[in-house]
Design a protein around this nucleic acid. Structure first.
Length: 862
RNA sequence: GCGGCGGUGGUGGAACGGUAGACACGGGGCCCUCAAAAGGCCUUGUCCGCAAGGACGUGUGGGUUCAAAUCCCACCCGCCGCACCA
């Protein structure tokens, strides 16, 4: 290491803070002693982990509760970035804190190792993804170790290894047997750049979430997982988990539950029924036309033989090739709505009216039934279409004009009494009429109340190589046949050419594709698509509980011991995708009898992004700060403390090189103070807040007492901040304690100074474990991680005098010393006689005196 | 458009309805030094004032309260998510 790049190397000397030497020493010891490994001890007596009282309300030390702290599975690509550092700094602080509260903490690590970047790299360089992925994993391991994170490495896993994906395949087959995995032909989102289909969740603004290419529609036969069966439970169970409200909101929006009715319109001419979903059955009498999505299967049949046939065919083929983005333009008012008359009519079941049928691209096949009844008077989209095609508009609800409406106040989307509908309903408030109409439809057999969701089934097929093979073979006689469990894993074969050609590269591995049907032993072919990598990461947290099990994906006893995860930590970018899929997997697996719980992550913490120059760090912007550089220059303890000190961990924070320097200076300062103090001590001292820190020693007085008080104040503050995840203020409190130490160092006893510094080191442990261990050992001779978390003693938190704030009319005028035991009258008198209060009350009438004991007195004068 | 989150010194940020600006960065001054770096000490919201002291101050405008950055209403600005979802 060069002198230049290492500030602490510049000045040799006994008291210099050599972060690297300290970090190497403790990392080696923790590795040698396997300090952070935790063995499975079997489930608790109660059978399962169950909901426990919040940590700080639980009696201390009574039982060694099993606690699972987990950061989101990293995707190993190149090197870890600052976001990883922040995530693990948060997770490790929590893990360390909980261990020292006496809990057994499971804190494992693994890699989300299948995926496109490794495959794209292979296409460019010809290096097998397995090779490049293993190299990336090695680099991640190296860095994670250099950060000193307290990981149980004995449970490490990588999703691309056969001993892992064997069980991914097993889960797929379990879902398949339960009817939750199925194949269907569907219009799917195709990314022309990555040459694969995408799940709805992976399309953002009509573009591939990964590469940004505009997504196009394709008709393909694909594998889906029936997540929609779980829509209601995914929604309901959000209420019972301690997640940030905004993440829950995002999931609720994504699931998109809406209540309404299914109403059947029929085309008598052709004898076809068209059920539609509507949230507004109260407006049924205002329907003036009817619209089908271009993808609707009956469109061709309807137009066939009419004068409209050619126009319809042309319109539909254009709509199908249009990108989602283009199709959405009319929603933003960028262009007029388009569509074509189908040459047919349907009957409105409530009044027998014949409504002209249209095909238009503003109706989506994926939502509801792909057909809508159009009520232009009360729906903005139908209104726009009616205007563009000069269709009739019939008002059926009264109400004051809304913003953006026309001269008649249309479209009107608010509530009001029904008009021109039916004598039974006219005059009634529309919400009441809605119920009555639904009841009526139900009685007449023309419709029923129903609930619709925006959530779609999860498309998991990918026409790519570097993923988990789908364990299905196709036999001419038997159809799709699951690979028997004893034949798992279906191992991903090596191939020469990874380049996608619109079908999976695996299709070229003829030897692998050709196989025997497990059922009839006849010739058969393997499925050549692989699974979406989100499948791999939807269950990894289960595997950690029993990572080396070769007989099963897990032993249920291991899950009963550890699951659900007590604290999950990761970025908000996974608020929908990963977190929704993992929840779905657990519900499905629980239904199949494999799990004893419904929700995988009891509590979630989402850490904010680290930005540079106001923007997300990225190679293309050239504003990347590499954790490796920071660790090399300042050491891991500085890097970890800094990312936690930047601001509240859940918020985005701007990187500042000066900020890192500041934190490093603080660590160097506590190092110097502690080292110098240790040299003056006769023997080891005890930290404050330990079980017997008062034993034997005389009660501190004067400056010593002040210092001891500050130590206990810091214990209280840091403990509370750790429970609230406000790490920035916890570190600030330790800084205050250290400032207090250097302020008093000349005037206090070495004993108390040493003891206070040991306390500071102890409190610093969750954030800067290496330095903390080093200094704690020098001062006390003990191992800080084996010490219980300190507890503040009341005797030191209470003071006999305090500064009473004296206000007049709410304005602070003076501060005077008051005794802790002074009663309300005494406090009032103290305030009235405070020197700087006098001029403000002189000659005025005191009309009220507010006393907040322990804080202030407010005199209200006139 | 709908939903969510936020707006506090030069900067990042602290503040159970009760001393606004903890802690840190940056700035200024001093000490140490031959000098510098490192380190240490002091200082630092704005305005008026030599000072003592005073006034103002948490996006804007109202309100509740003895007391509001904090609670309520309206608005402005910024960020995030969803968005032709019938």
């Amino acid at each position: 290491m060069s002198e230049q790049s290492n500030p602490q190397g510049e000045r040799a000397g006994a008291s210099a803070y050599d972060a690297h030497a300290i970090e190497r020493r403790w990392q080696a010891l923790w590795e040698r002693e396997r300090t952070w490994e935790v063995a499975n001890e079997g489930p608790p007596a109660s059978g399962a982990k169950g909901a426990r009282a919040p940590l700080h309300e639980r009696p201390r030390g009574e039982e060694r509760a099993a606690v699972y702290v987990l950061e989101m599975l990293p995707y190993p690509s190149g090197e870890p970035h600052i976001g990883h550092l922040k995530c693990y700094a948060v997770g490790d602080a929590i893990a360390h804190y909980r261990r020292r509260l006496g809990e057994r903490v499971l804190h494992p690590m693994g890699y989300d190792a299948f995926g496109l970047p490794a495959e794209n790299h292979a296409i460019r360089t010809g290096v097998h993804p397995r090779i490049s992925t293993r190299a990336s994993i090695a680099s991640f391991q190296r860095q994670f170790r250099s950060w000193g994170i307290s990981i149980d490495w004995s449970r490490e896993l990588a999703t691309c290894e056969p001993d892992y994906y064997r069980w991914t395949q097993w889960i797929f087959l379990e879902l398949y047997r339960a009817g939750l995995a199925y194949r269907k032909q569907a219009a799917v989102k195709w990314c022309p750049n990555d040459q694969t289909v995408l799940a709805n969740e992976q399309v953002v603004d009509g573009r591939c979430e990964r590469c940004g290419a505009v997504v196009v529609a394709r008709q393909l036969e694909q594998w889906f997982l029936r997540i929609t069966d779980y829509a209601e439970r995914l929604l309901e169970d959000l209420d019972g988990i301690a997640w940030p409200e905004h993440v829950k909101t995002m999931q609720r929006n994504w699931i998109g539950r809406s209540e309404g009715a299914e109403v059947v319109f029929s085309c008598e001419e052709l004898g076809i029924d068209f059920p539609v979903f509507t949230t507004r059955p109260d407006t049924l009498f205002g329907a003036t036309f009817f619209v089908l999505a271009p993808e609707h299967p009956e469109v061709g049949r309807l137009a066939a033989g009419t004068a409209q046939e050619q126009a319809v065919t042309e319109y539909v083929s254009r709509a199908l090739t249009e990108s989602n983005e283009e199709r959405g333009e009319s929603a933003e008012g960028k262009r007029e709505k388009t569509g074509v008359f189908l040459g047919r009519t349907v009957t409105n079941p409530v009044n027998g009216q014949q409504l002209p049928m249209y095909v238009a691209d503003y109706v989506l096949m994926e939502y509801g039934t792909g057909a809508v009844m159009a009520v232009p008077a009360h729906d903005a989209r139908d209104y726009a279409f009616a205007k563009a095609f000069e269709l009739p508009i019939k008002r059926v609800i009264e109400g004051a004009p809304e913003e953006g409406g026309d001269e008649q106040g249309l479209p009107y989307t608010g509530d009001g009494p029904l008009i021109d509908s039916h004598p039974d309903f006219d005059g009634r408030p529309n919400r009441e009429a809605l119920q009555l109409i639904v009841d009526w439809l139900q009685r007449e057999g023309k419709g029923h109340a129903t609930v619709s969701y925006r959530l779609r089934d999860w498309l998991i097929s990918r026409q790519r190589y570097w993923g988990c093979p789908i364990p299905i073979v196709y036999c001419e006689g038997c159809g799709p046949v699951p690979v028997p469990e004893r034949d798992l894993p279906v191992v991903l074969p090596d191939i020469d050419d990874y380049a996608p050609k619109g079908r999976s590269p695996l299709a070229a591995a003829e030897d692998w594709v050709r196989t025997r049907c497990p059922s009839c032993k006849g010739e058969a072919r393997r499925e050549t698509d692989t699974m979406d990598t989100f499948v791999d990461s939807s269950w990894y947290f289960l595997r950690y509980c029993d990572a080396r099990n070769e007989q099963a994906a897990w032993d249920p006893a291991a899950l009963r011991e550890w699951m659900p995860v007590d604290q999950y930590i990761g970025g908000v970018e996974h608020a929908i995708l990963h977190l929704m899929y993992a929840r779905f997997f657990c519900k499905a697996l629980a239904d199949l009898g494999h799990l004893h719980f419904q929700e995988p992550f009891s509590a979630l913490f989402t850490q904010g992004m680290v930005t540079k120059d106001g923007a997300k760090m990225s190679k293309s912007r050239g504003n990347v700060v590499s954790p490796a550089q920071i660790v090399e220059r300042y050491g891991a303890d500085t890097a970890r403390c800094y990312v936690l000190f930047m601001g509240p961990a859940e918020q985005d924070a701007e990187w500042s090189d000066e900020g890192v320097e500041g934190v490093h200076r603080f660590l160097a300062r506590i190092h110097r103070l502690a080292t110098e103090t240790a040299a003056q001590l006769q023997g080891p001292v005890r930290a404050q807040g330990g079980e017997s820190s008062l034993d034997g020693a005389p009660a501190p007085e004067g400056v010593d007492l002040e210092l001891a008080r500050k130590a206990h104040w810091a214990i209280e503050k840091v403990s509370g901040d750790l429970r609230r995840f406000t790490f920035n203020t916890a570190i600030a409190a330790i800084m205050e304690l250290i400032n207090e130490c250097s302020r008093h160092r000349e005037r206090c006893s070495a004993q108390v100074l040493g003891s206070t510094l040991a306390t500071a080191a102890s409190l610093l442990f969750p954030f800067a474990p290496h330095l903390s261990a080093e200094l704690y050992e020098r001062l006390t001779g003990a191992r800080v991680w084996e010490e219980p978390w300190p507890q503040a003693e009341q005797a030191f938190l209470q003071r006999d005098v305090y500064e009473l704030v004296c206000q007049v009319n709410g304005k602070v005028r003076d501060r005077v010393l008051a005794g802790a035991d002074a009663d309300i009258e005494e406090l009032k008198a103290l305030c009235r006689s405070a020197p700087r209060v006098q001029p403000h009350i002189d000659g005025r009438e005191i009309v009220r005196e507010i006393v907040v004991p322990g804080r202030l007195v407010n005199l209200v004068v006139r």
